[in-house]
Design a protein around this nucleic acid. Sequence first.
DNA 1: ACCTGAACACCGTTCAAGT
DNA 2: ACCTGAACACCGTTCAAGT
Lengths: 223, 223
Amino acid sequence: MAKRNEATRGRLSRDAIIVSAVSLADSEGLEAVTIRRLAQEHGVTPMAMYWHFTDKESLLDGLADHLIEAVRLPAPSDAPWDEQLRAILHAFLATIRPHPRLAGLAMRRILAAEAGLMIAERVLGLLHRAGFPAARAAEIGTFLICSMVTLANGEPAPGPPPSVEGREQMLRDKRARLDSLPPSRYPNVIAAAPALVVCRDEDDYFALNLDLLVQGVRGLRRG
Amino acid sequence: MAKRNEATRGRLSRDAIIVSAVSLADSEGLEAVTIRRLAQEHGVTPMAMYWHFTDKESLLDGLADHLIEAVRLPAPSDAPWDEQLRAILHAFLATIRPHPRLAGLAMRRILAAEAGLMIAERVLGLLHRAGFPAARAAEIGTFLICSMVTLANGEPAPGPPPSVEGREQMLRDKRARLDSLPPSRYPNVIAAAPALVVCRDEDDYFALNLDLLVQGVRGLRRG
DNA sequence: ACCTGAACACCGTTCAAGT
DNA sequence: ACCTGAACACCGTTCAAGT
């Protein structure tokens, strides 16, 4: 696509590649993020990528690191542990939300990137303060972070690239299929149909289930 | 691999393909599930698959349906809503747990397969009985089902095929990396290191976080 | 109804070579 | 240090054809 010229010469870098990979994933999905495709966008041979990344896995690692490093962690405070926990989870979610197709990559580098370790440390510290022994805190904390990815993933169907109009058609189809169900067998599905088909772009979905999780941790403590 | 003979002749069917796809995904990961690979295992041309599936997406749909249909839903009872909810989520989790590499496919067919609709209906019904309006029940229910996939996925890193010994090496490396962290910066990570690296095959992890979720729903109801 | 054969446009990656 | 070129073993899929 973009041919190389003097302006861009020698400017092929890890960062430039990762930035374009992010926007490519955002627009066309993770399966469009391809060594060859990225090379083409930078006006370069596919093999040029192997100077900057040892293989595709390390490219994906780079994407994950990039995501994780963007998290703006709130400063530790005197607030109660559950409020602080919620704030940290929210900060993480807010960062990955704009990149639902990339969110799934985050977990692979949480315990590798420094920024990820800091997140883990804070979460584990708060759970420890809440009274959970270290092993328990690890299990809960892991699940909580995974859950942010789950929330960010949003659309449950990791299917083909939803083109702008193809996507709307899909939603209409989905809605029509639910509405055509026998009401005697599926009364609750039909009642919930509108909320089941709209992708939950709504902050509502995120806030509600973030609450669910934090309340869940408090509930665990009570036994 | 397996050449066709009289015993298997004409026995190439949707079901046979799906069954081998499941075991292939279990042993080598979802990325090993390939039209060509499956054809080869059945001693057949890749193009033969297109008689039984319109494309690869529909093969994956078939895998998802196969998973969902295997769920043994507990019969409705007079037990409190939260106990029943927990039982349903547990039944779903128990079915997908043996197939962590396939678990992610489940969501794409929950609202399409009959068995999936039945699960949705039951979950939504219980949430309705708990007092949540339909839209809220939809958001919570969607998240709860997604969470079972998250739990089943287990290993947060959906990386390359963890060969039997390569996997153990990876765990050792991961452990070593965590243990080499500066204790002053990451005291809680280090304290939790053992629990962070072992994959949570343990029922503990599942039961704990299932409790977290159910308690969370109860917490939401209290407001 | 069920399958083959050749072909096309894609992948990731290795190896040797250029500047 | 950074990139090219040719080649290899893979993908999914279409189209025409066989039985």
